[in-house]
Design a protein around this nucleic acid. Structure first.
Length: 438
DNA sequence: TCTGGGGTCCTAGGACCC
DNA sequence: TCTGGGGTCCTAGGACCC
């Protein structure tokens, strides 16, 4: 076991989505608050007060007893807002630390090597983020990223319910002080591994670190062996400063109700997927499309189709043609029996992604340059005037830019778009939603 | 005739993350 | 009535090739 000075810190926002909602709606502070996922379905974020009422992440809100539901504040997920606040936090961290790895929407790893007092700098980061963005954070320090993660969790535990968390919001984890951390709370240990580890008497992070590495390797694989090694203070990975290129890109949704004609939904997913693709400078070598029945009504229907493109493409129109073809094939198969199949979920996946610049044209196939220039213009217009201002084909467009949950009356997309009843304004990313100060 | 053995690619499933 | 979405990596087994 080594006790090294900290090399990394993990800084993250406490119950991030809830905290974001509270920045612009202070009436939520101190009240049990939940943020719901797509279609106002499941709880995806809970304030501590909501957790205290017994609510759990992932629970469908309609299953929560009414007397409890009446006591919680509910918001629909507002990812435009969360993403924007997340970016502001990253900017603050870049001003304090030499290297920052954006790990997720609410977590950042930073490099603390060479800082005079890493603990104090983490406290400073916490202060600035609280004051300038309004989000309370915790920080974990460690000589490996896994230990920094562990420290973050321990900081959360020890600062819970403290009115002014202060120094308690930062914790330096070492191989010697992680016995209070349950093994299921270790980064890299999920439900399955936790159950198996518990069964062999491994209850804490310290127990896992003490397990012989070849045993971990043989029973659980190389990934968990790395985790165990990192808990001992031996780093197996550094910060990842460059986001690696995506290998696949998926857009899928549960529909607001069962729909018989899923094409409008799939066309919308295709449009969004291709926009993301071009934004990243990638092209898709293959496509897959899938449709599901409603498992909650006992319909296990699932079918998918895939097709490669002759040449990796960025062209929404080309992808859309292929999506229509595959969807029709699924529907034909589904309707061959008795009755008409209805769908509750569907998705579009782009795979075999490559850098668009690096595509090799051959004698027979190359990029459709005219189509791709058209797409570039389309992206520019949508960037300026809002997503969905212009598009390809018959997708349900909306002038001025649509937000999730906004329906066009009488349009076909009203069939599948879930209605969001409690979406907060896009305070920071939409001029018309700016807060007014009287 | 020799029916072995090693390499590679693909896919499906399982595990994890947020 | 209402049931989240988007990723990665590893491994085992089969197909295929030489």
């Amino acid at each position: 076991m080594h006790t090294e000075p900290p090399r990394f810190a993990l800084i993250d926002g406490n119950t991030f989505y809830v905290s974001c909602e509270r920045v612009f709606d202070p009436t939520l502070r101190g009240k049990p608050t939940v943020v719901l996922g797509n279609g106002d379905g499941c709880c995806i974020a809970l304030s501590p007060e909501a957790k205290a009422l017994g609510l759990k992440i992932g629970t469908p809100i309609f299953q929560v007893p009414k007397d409890i539901r009446d006591r919680v504040q509910v918001r629909s997920a507002n990812f435009a807002l969360y993403g924007d606040l997340s970016g502001r936090i990253v900017t603050i961290l870049r001003g304090l630390f030499p290297r920052v790895e954006v790990y997720s929407i609410d977590e950042n790893f930073v490099d603390v090597v060479g800082l005079k007092d890493p603990f104090a700098t983490c406290l400073e980061a916490r202060e600035r983020i609280l004051k300038w963005v309004g989000i309370p954070c915790c920080a974990g320090l460690g000589s490996t990223r896994t230990l920094a993660k562990a420290g973050n969790k321990l900081a959360k535990d020890q600062s819970k319910r403290a009115v002014n968390a202060g120094r308690l919001a930062v914790f330096h984890a070492t191989p010697q002080n992680i016995d209070a951390l349950a093994v299921e709370d270790v980064w890299g240990v999920g439900r399955r591994f936790a159950a198996r580890l518990n069964a062999e008497g491994v209850k804490t992070a310290a127990d896992l670190a003490a397990l012989p590495l070849d045993h971990v390797r043989a029973r659980y694989g190389v990934v968990l062996a790395r985790t165990a090694t990192e808990l001992r203070g031996i780093a197996c990975g550094d910060l990842e400063l460059e986001e690696p290129d995506r290998k696949q890109l998926v857009v899928s949704r549960t529909f607001g109700r069962d729909v018989v004609d899923p094409m409008d939904a799939l066309a919308t997913f295709t449009t969004v997927a291709c926009e993301k693709l071009r934004k990243r400078g990638l092209a898709a070598g293959a496509l897959w499309v899938w449709l599901d029945g409603n498992p909650f009504k006992g319909d296990p229907f699932h079918a998918s189709r895939a097709v490669p493109f002759p040449f990796p493409t960025q062209d929404t129109a080309e992808v859309l043609r292929a999506v229509r073809f595959l969807a029709k094939s699924i529907q034909d198969q589904a309707n061959r029996g008795s009755g008409v199949q209805a769908y509750k979920r569907g998705g579009v996946g782009l795979t075999d992604l490559v850098q668009a610049q690096a595509r090799q044209a051959d004698l027979f196939f190359g990029p459709d340059e005219k189509a791709e220039r058209t797409m570039a213009v389309l992206d520019k217009i949508n960037a300026k005037w809002g997503r969905g201002t212009v598009g390809v084909g018959t997708v349900g467009w909306r002038v001025g830019g649509a937000r999730p949950g906004e329906r066009r009356r009488g349009s076909r997309d009203a069939q599948w778009r879930p209605e969001l009843k409690a979406l907060s304004p896009a305070y920071t990313t939409r001029w018309s939603d700016l807060l007014r100060v009287r």
